Amino acid sequence: MSLSGPSESPPKPLPRAPGPKLAPFTRTAHAVIQFVNELGSPGQDGRVWEVKIRGKTYALKMISNISPTDYLRDDLAGHLVRDLSSPQFYAHYFDPFNCECRAYGRLKEENQEHLAVRSHGYLLLTHAQELEITRLITGTEDDRDDLWERTEKDRNLPVRAIVKDLVKGGHPFTAEQVPQMWADLKALHELGIMVRDINIFNHLNGKIIDFSRSWSTPHPGYTAIDRYDLREERSGDPHGLNRAVIEWGIGNRWAWDQVVIPDELVKCASGRSPNKYGPDPRVYNWLKWEKDPLVASEFMEKHVFTGSGNKEH
């Protein structure tokens, strides 16, 4: 099974690992891009700009090059109890760009793109585009390696980007949208997706806009994590949504007697629901999308983890 990355020609859906993948936005994964203006403040995993491509307006999330393996392993995958067998697997399953690709790929294959702000595919910036956006952000082209967190090893890798619908104006969400937000989150879990970063500013007009920390089945986080950490992970999404609703509502002086916060959400946020934290994303049948389910299943079982058992530090 090929596990090569975005340098392949012609470009393939990414990441090159079992499970969901996101196709390129164009046949070549390149496009003529007009950068209009930055949207919001730079996030922890990238920058989002309003752009025009082929006469249409989009939000383009540009993500720095694949994070160093030690950061992926020790920070983003720090709760795994088993080591992954290759640095490439840490990139496939924990790198923010690949996390987005996997979540959006799942929404596309299930025809459930309405559960989040829609993605249209990925792009790879050309050298000239990278210099242009660096100049627009910093005023000079000289800072591009620092801006995109490049090391000497990945200096020639392109900046990766996700093309999404542009949502203009509005608030993260309104009181009326809260029940639907909970329904959407449960539906994501039923599709094997945990967002793992639910907060006020991960929503626009009631829809999730960011999957850069998500886990999508199949994922090592679902199979190589101790019981306590898994409980914390599964409770994190409903707890985060419940907290975001309260914080945003207080800040905007909602009339709480008119706000409907689903009782199930409140119970799942604290683990007091009969089904604990809502639908279990681990039980999603991801193999139905694989051309050879047996090969894909065996690959996950025999090749993703080291044979040494417990994680070494």
Rank of each mutant, 00 (worst) to 15 (best):
M1L: 09
M1V: 00
G5C: 10
G5M: 04
E8T: 02
P11Y: 02
K12P: 00
A17P: 00
A23E: 15
P24T: 01
R27H: 01
F35E: 06
R54D: 15
Y58R: 08
T69A: 15
T69D: 13
Y71A: 09
L76Y: 08
A77D: 00
A77S: 06
R82Q: 11
D83A: 07
P87G: 02
A91K: 05
F94K: 05
F97H: 03
K108M: 15
E109A: 06
E109M: 15
L123A: 04
L131T: 01
I133T: 08
I137H: 12
D143N: 07
I162N: 13
V163A: 10
K164W: 13
G170Y: 09
Q177S: 07
V178N: 12
Q180D: 11
L185S: 05
H189Q: 11
I198G: 05
N199G: 12
I200F: 03
F201K: 06
H203M: 01
I209A: 02
S214C: 06
S216W: 05
T217L: 14
D237S: 12
H239D: 11
G240V: 03
G240C: 06
E247D: 12
G249H: 06
I250Q: 13
I250T: 11
S270V: 05
N275R: 14
N275W: 14
Y277D: 08
K288I: 08
K288W: 10
E290L: 13
E301F: 07
T306Y: 08
G307L: 14
